[in-house]
Simulated scan of single mutants.
Amino acid sequence: MTARPTPGDLLRIDGRASVQFAGGRALTLRVVSVSERHAYDGWIWLTGYVIDGRGNAIAKREVYVQLAGLRPASVAASRGRVRGAIRADRGHSSPRRESGVSSC
Score class of each variant (00 low, 15 high):
residue 69 G to V: 08
residue 71 R to C: 06
residue 75 V to K: 13
residue 58 I to H: 05
residue 62 E to L: 10
residue 31 V to R: 02
residue 23 G to E: 04
residue 19 V to F: 11
residue 93 S to G: 12
residue 92 H to A: 14
residue 43 W to A: 04
residue 85 A to L: 10
residue 79 R to E: 12
residue 35 S to R: 04
residue 21 F to E: 02
residue 38 H to D: 08
residue 8 G to K: 01
residue 67 L to D: 03
residue 17 A to D: 07
residue 97 R to C: 14
residue 40 Y to P: 15
residue 73 A to W: 05
residue 78 S to Y: 01
residue 77 A to I: 09
residue 83 R to P: 03
residue 80 G to W: 12
residue 77 A to H: 14
residue 17 A to Q: 03
residue 100 G to V: 00
residue 13 I to D: 00
residue 26 A to F: 11
residue 13 I to P: 01
residue 93 S to I: 14
residue 44 I to L: 13
residue 33 S to R: 08
residue 39 A to K: 02
residue 61 R to L: 09
residue 96 R to G: 15
residue 101 V to C: 09
residue 22 A to N: 08
residue 103 S to Q: 15
residue 48 G to P: 02
residue 103 S to C: 10
residue 27 L to F: 04
residue 78 S to Q: 05
residue 71 R to Q: 11
residue 102 S to R: 15
residue 57 A to F: 02
residue 28 T to A: 11
residue 52 D to N: 14
residue 70 L to Y: 01
residue 103 S to D: 14
residue 37 R to T: 10
residue 48 G to E: 02
residue 19 V to D: 14
residue 80 G to C: 09
residue 103 S to N: 14
residue 24 G to C: 08
residue 73 A to F: 00
residue 97 R to H: 15
residue 5 P to E: 02
residue 21 F to R: 06
residue 46 L to A: 03
residue 95 P to F: 02
residue 30 R to P: 03
residue 22 A to M: 07
residue 18 S to V: 00
residue 81 R to Q: 12
residue 33 S to Q: 06
residue 52 D to R: 04
residue 34 V to I: 04
residue 67 L to V: 03
residue 43 W to V: 03
residue 100 G to A: 09
residue 24 G to Y: 02
residue 58 I to P: 01
residue 63 V to T: 06
residue 60 K to P: 14
residue 96 R to V: 12
